[in-house]
């Protein structure tokens, strides 16, 4: 009997968490900052194309070539999107205290926290996926995908990339809930990410020691480092075919670490959120 009652309570809480997700969705859809974030994410990868010399690539452009040239920008685009979306969904309501209404309306802190977490992850992962796939799909429809990039491997890289986006988003979620301010979260999140990258480069330059710090951004960069290729004759044409294969150990370790770090960040964030008084 107790188990049935607990199940009913659990279902009621899930429904109520779903209400929080819907309200966040309503708010985020009209949020100009998030809209700008998406526009940046869509435009950023095209910069990769423009950086390719004289722009002659546009004559030979297909889905695969776009992916090859734009992919170094995907990590940065995903970082910016995650920063903005997470800060807005998880921090904006804390900044102006409207999050308090949800507690006062009878939502448990778990509903409030995980409702926002789910909403943020859907927007960041879905948004990163859309930003990657939509241009590729559109260009492929017009110009074809080409033979440079094995499609199956592209799908695998995308899947692993989204796992790393999950990790990065969770790190920003933790930061945002600790700071309880969306603007501070954006600033510090950007600072940590930039310093993480630049700091490593400076350290390597100064000391000559290659420092490998497996941040989410570094992982993403590794996934889109398409250096290996072979020249193959396909349909009478010599084409560069890139080798996207990944060692199984890299796949598993990247995914596992991403999931583990992500879950730890979420749990730590929840502990802080549930035990602190609301402002």
């Amino acid at each position: 009997m107790m188990q049935i009652w607990n199940s009913i309570i659990w279902i009621w809480q899930v429904i109520r968490m779903w209400n929080i997700m819907k309200s966040q969705n309503y708010q985020t859809r009209g949020d100009n900052l998030v809209i700008y974030g998406f526009l940046i994410v869509l435009i950023f990868p095209f910069l990769g194309l423009l950086m390719d010399g004289d722009g002659s690539i546009f004559g030979d452009l297909n889905g695969g070539m776009y992916l090859l040239l734009a992919s170094p920008m995907f990590p940065f685009a995903a970082t910016i999107l995650s920063l903005i979306v997470v800060a807005r969904i998880c921090g904006w309501d804390s900044t102006d205290k409207t999050i308090n209404y949800e507690i006062m309306a009878g939502h448990s802190k778990a509903e409030v926290y995980f409702g926002r977490v789910c909403s943020a992850l859907i927007w960041t992962i879905g948004g990163s996926f859309a930003a990657m796939v939509l241009p590729v799909a559109v260009i492929s429809l017009i110009c074809g995908f080409g033979n440079s990039m094995p499609l199956g491997d592209v799908a695998l890289h995308t899947g692993i990339f989204l796992a790393v986006v999950f990790r990065m988003s969770c790190e920003y979620i933790l930061l945002t809930f600790l700071l309880r301010n969306c603007y501070a979260a954006m600033l510090l999140g950007y600072t940590f990410t930039a310093f993480g990258m630049v700091g490593v480069m400076i350290y390597t330059d100064i000391t000559g020691v290659e420092l490998t710090v497996e941040t989410a951004l570094v992982n993403m960069g590794q996934l889109f480092n398409f250096g290996n290729y072979q020249i193959k004759n396909i349909g009478g044409e010599e084409i560069q075919v890139f080798n996207l294969s990944l060692e199984p150990s890299i796949i598993s370790s990247t995914v596992l670490v991403s999931l583990l770090v992500g879950i730890i960040c979420l749990l730590v964030g929840y502990v802080f959120f549930s035990r602190r008084d609301m402002r």
Partner: peptide, 14 residues
């Protein structure tokens, strides 16, 4: 609390 409503301090709003 779902049967209650609160207005505490200056009302919060977006």
């Amino acid at each position: 609390r779902s049967r209650m409503s609160f207005m505490i301090e200056t009302p919060y709003a977006k």
